[in-house]
């Protein structure tokens, strides 16, 4: 069990980490980065699987099913579009190549 204050420390450190990591990103990467961070919160898939995994009643299973479905969409979609965008960034050394 993660106790209240330990959780608070985790939240605090994670918040500073996120702020620091992003603060040095050039504007040209803002869109892929927003998409990339969108992918990272796709980790909600893990939680959705756990929630569905211990759902008992029909209603819980229905909600759980949608949770996993949506979360998988978040993770997979976020990855695919981010990867597609980042793949296109190249320097003039390889110009003309697609």
């Amino acid at each position: 069990m993660i106790e209240g204050f330990v959780a608070l420390y985790i939240f605090m450190l994670a918040a500073f980490t996120g702020y620091e990591v992003i603060s040095k990103v050039p504007v040209i990467l803002h869109t892929p980065l927003m998409s990339g961070s969108n992918f990272v919160h796709g980790i909600v898939l893990v939680g959705a699987m756990i929630a569905l995994g211990h759902a008992d009643t029909g209603l819980e299973m229905l909600i759980g099913f949608f949770a996993v479905l949506l979360a998988a969409g978040n993770a997979v979609g976020g990855y695919v579009v981010t990867e597609r965008m980042l793949e296109m960034f190249k320097t003039s050394d390889k110009k003309g190549s697609k």
Binding site: G18, I22, L33, M34, V40
Partner: peptide, 30 residues
């Protein structure tokens, strides 16, 4: 991101807590 982080605590899942809050703060800055 914040919502994922909070639900991570509910499920006692540190990966969700960290990833969620990192995105929460990064997204706020963005």
């Amino acid at each position: 991101g914040l919502a994922v982080g909070f639900e991570g605590y509910v499920l006692q899942n540190p990966a969700m807590m960290i990833a969620g809050i990192v995105v929460g703060s990064a997204g706020t800055l963005l």
